[in-house]
Amino acid sequence: SEHYTFDGEEQAIRFMRDMEAKNLKYELQIHNGKYIIQVD
């Protein structure tokens, strides 16, 4: 699995939509205002 970190919500949402379009599962965590997305 890989981790991707985003500072902004818009970037994170765009990335998650992209993952959904590719049928990839992901998990979102928010730490200290950063959006951390783990992709299986």
Rank of each mutant, 00 (worst) to 15 (best):
S1M: 13
S1Q: 12
S1K: 13
S1D: 08
S1E: 08
S1I: 13
S1Y: 13
E2S: 13
E2D: 11
E2W: 15
E2H: 14
E2G: 13
E2K: 14
H3R: 14
H3K: 13
Y4S: 02
Y4H: 08
Y4M: 04
Y4Q: 03
Y4N: 02
T5H: 10
T5R: 06
T5G: 03
F6S: 01
F6A: 01
F6K: 00
F6T: 01
F6Y: 02
D7L: 08
D7R: 04
D7W: 10
D7A: 07
D7S: 09
D7V: 07
D7N: 07
D7F: 10
G8A: 13
G8Q: 14
G8W: 12
G8S: 15
G8H: 14
E9N: 04
E9P: 11
E9S: 06
E9I: 13
E9F: 12
E10C: 13
E10K: 05
E10T: 06
E10W: 08
E10M: 07
Q11L: 09
Q11W: 07
Q11Y: 06
Q11A: 14
Q11T: 06
A12D: 00
A12W: 05
A12F: 06
A12I: 02
I13A: 09
I13T: 09
I13E: 09
I13L: 13
R14G: 07
R14L: 11
R14V: 09
R14I: 11
R14M: 12
R14A: 14
F15N: 00
F15M: 04
M16E: 01
M16V: 05
M16I: 11
M16Q: 02
M16T: 02
M16S: 02
M16G: 03
R17I: 08
R17V: 06
R17G: 04
R17N: 08
D18K: 10
D18R: 10
D18F: 12
D18C: 15
D18N: 08
M19H: 03
M19R: 02
M19F: 04
M19A: 08
M19T: 03
E20M: 08
E20K: 06
E20N: 06
E20Q: 08
E20V: 06
A21W: 07
A21Q: 10
K22T: 04
K22A: 10
K22Y: 07
K22G: 05
N23C: 12
N23M: 08
N23G: 15
N23I: 03
L24G: 03
L24A: 06
L24F: 09
L24S: 04
L24W: 09
K25R: 11
K25V: 08
K25G: 06
K25H: 11
K25I: 07
K25D: 04
Y26W: 08
Y26S: 04
Y26M: 06
Y26Q: 00
E27F: 13
E27R: 13
E27Q: 13
L28V: 12
L28H: 02
L28K: 02
L28I: 09
L28T: 04
Q29W: 13
Q29K: 13
Q29G: 04
Q29R: 13
Q29I: 14
I30P: 02
I30V: 10
I30Q: 05
I30Y: 10
H31D: 09
H31G: 04
H31M: 12
H31P: 01
H31T: 11
N32A: 08
N32G: 10
G33S: 04
G33K: 04
G33H: 05
G33C: 03
K34M: 11
K34N: 04
K34L: 11
Y35A: 01
Y35I: 05
Y35C: 01
Y35E: 00
Y35G: 00
I36R: 04
I36N: 04
I36Q: 04
I36T: 07
I36G: 01
I36A: 03
I36S: 05
I37Y: 02
I37D: 00
I37G: 01
Q38M: 14
Q38F: 15
Q38C: 15
Q38E: 09
Q38D: 06
Q38R: 15
Q38V: 15
V39D: 01
V39P: 03
V39A: 04
D40V: 14
D40A: 13
D40P: 12
D40I: 15
D40K: 14
D40Y: 15
D40F: 15
